[in-house]
């Protein structure tokens, strides 16, 4: 392949990898917003905790040296991190957000920021500030496809995030829980009167969003590094992904994640240097929001008087 083509393909793959992670985390922001119209700013830090859960599970399983097949180790690590993170998120919702459900929206948002800071500092105090990497749970191979380099982790990240998206979409559209979620996001006052257990559905939403973040967390921890502050930057980018896609809209969050991935990777390509990457990237997004204030797939909000 000629060089410009390989570069384009290579950078597209890079963007898909970054975008997949943003998309998986953005789903959590958008789901909670959809049901509670609240922005769970602790979500980036919940993602951080999930990578640590994965790290310890993987280290423990590999340390046992039971010669388990890699797939079993990978899946059990994934399951452990998902269940652990979902439990944490449900506890956070019960302890920190539920008492504030009738309070002004702003109170819950500030509480969420506080929970995030708590999680960062708790991890810092208990585990320490050293960066770590989740040990490879499947063979990490680098493939050279006539000039384009693809690693197995890259394929897994992109593949898994698409699969997760399809599963989530099915849950929300085809199951009773999903229907209840959509109903609550449609009208919070009438739905409880129809016999929908609102509290349980809200818990389920938190659990689902966090379990998805945990999937992203394990893959991210294998491809990159974990440290107690990692949730801040990636949390912001994912939150912006959700806003760009149209916050509250699940497909929108997915689209938004990939848009941010592409913006992050392709802005330096067209600039002479990468110094102004974030500046240019966010100016573009600002412009997009000027023309579509509710995001790409978001519906215009009708103020009810």
């Amino acid at each position: 392949m000629p060089q410009p083509v390989t570069t384009l393909v290579q950078q597209t793959l890079n963007a898909l990898q970054v975008g997949s992670v943003y998309a998986l985390i953005a789903l959590g922001y958008t789901m909670v917003y959809g049901i509670l119209t609240m922005i769970n700013f602790a979500h980036g830090d919940i993602f951080m905790v999930s990578t640590y859960l994965g790290f310890f599970a993987a280290a423990w399983l590999l340390g046992l040296a039971l010669n388990m097949p890699p797939l079993v180790i990978f899946l059990s690590t994934l399951l452990f991190a998902m269940v652990g993170t979902a439990t944490l998120a449900v506890i956070i919702e019960r302890v920190a957000y539920k008492p504030l459900r009738q309070a002004p929206r702003l109170s819950a948002v500030i509480t969420a920021l506080g929970v995030g800071i708590f999680l960062e500092n708790f991890t810092l105090a208990v585990i320490g500030p050293e960066p770590r990497t989740i040990p490879p749970l499947f063979p990490l191979v680098n493939l050279n496809l006539s000039g384009v380099f693809v690693s197995t982790i890259q394929i897994v990240i992109i593949g898994v995030s698409v699969i997760v998206m399809i599963i989530l979409d099915t849950i929300v559209r085809r199951t009773m829980t999903g229907m209840a979620m959509r109903a609550i996001s449609f009208d919070k006052t009438i739905v409880p009167l129809m016999g929908v257990p609102v509290d349980r559905i809200i818990s389920a939403t938190f659990a689902l969003g966090s379990a998805i973040a945990a999937v992203g967390g394990i893959l991210y921890g294998m491809a990159y590094q974990l440290d107690p502050y990692m949730g801040i930057r990636i949390g912001w980018w994912a939150f912006i992904s959700a806003v760009v896609g149209g916050i509250g809209n699940i497909r929108g969050a997915f689209v938004g994640g990939f848009i941010l991935g592409f913006v992050e990777i392709f802005t330096p390509v067209f600039l002479p240097s990468s110094t102004y990457r974030d500046f240019v990237a966010f100016s573009l997004l600002l412009l997009l929001l000027v023309f579509r204030p509710t995001g790409i797939l978001g519906r215009p909000i009708v103020q009810k008087v």
Binding site: Q225, I232, I265, P268
Partner: peptide, 11 residues
């Protein structure tokens, strides 16, 4: 704080 350098490294 950046963890992904793939764009710059490809360049």
């Amino acid at each position: 704080g950046d963890k992904d350098f793939s764009s710059q490294l490809t360049k």
